[in-house]
Amino acid sequence: MQGMNIATTRGSKRFTYVYIYLILGILTLLCAFPLYIMFINATRSNIEILNGISFLPSTHAVQNYHTMQSKVPIWHGFINSTLITVPFTLLAAFFSSLTAYGFAMYDFKYKKYIFGFVLGTMMIPMQLGLIGYFEFCNYFGLLDTFFPLIITGAINTGSVFFIKQYTEQSLPVSLMEAARMDEASELDIYWRIALPIISPSIATMSIFNFVFCWNNYMGPLVLLFSEDKYPLPVLISLVRGTAYRTDFGAMYFTIALSILPIIVAYAFLSKYLISGLTLGAVKE
């Protein structure tokens, strides 16, 4: 796909390439600029920021950290986010692969309709059932707990769809039949034979699910009330209104700290994420 190089006349070639790299450079700058300024300003004192801009870091990161710590329990936010996101991702991995495997490898009655139904519900906006969900959780005393945020991992239709596609392409039926000859139970076949083969797709979806849950703002905003239970996004959004507004350095530092883990993780995982994107979306 790369470098097909069709029909470029030689004369204009060099000019075209200068122009292309120029625009790519501008887009890269545009992409990086807000984040770069954020990291720079996270190291500058409030007074330095009020006095003007700088493209080089300063020396006040530690001071900003202390100011932040006295005002926002950000480590608490990290812990809460982890306590919600890890079980959510595990539930999604388990239930999605189980369901996807059921759809991919068995040929039961009404399968097409049932699967079509699942696909159809993917189009439903998340907020449609939100108030009902809130009332439901209220009735069972589940408000202000992590449970309603975690359990939705088990009903992740996107993952079911993605893993099903992958399973159909990668798992030969003959392998299952051979295992049945050896009197292996159906659950054994899934657990011992299918899972290792389809695990790349589960891993890819897990990264996406982790990111989705980690970044989820509206869910915890509606379902949690106590500040000591807030995950990172809700905690961060509170920073806007607090007295803390007067210290820009500390504010930049807080935002930078909340974003840093994602950027570090992305440096290692970008390959899987990008290939996963196109696998799930375009193939019909």
């Binding site: 954020m38 996004p233 961060i236 959004s237 504010m251 930049y252 935002i255 994602i262």
Partner: peptide, 10 residues
Amino acid sequence: LVTMASIALL
């Protein structure tokens, strides 16, 4: 991939 709440605050 970056948390939207953080981006908005930024």
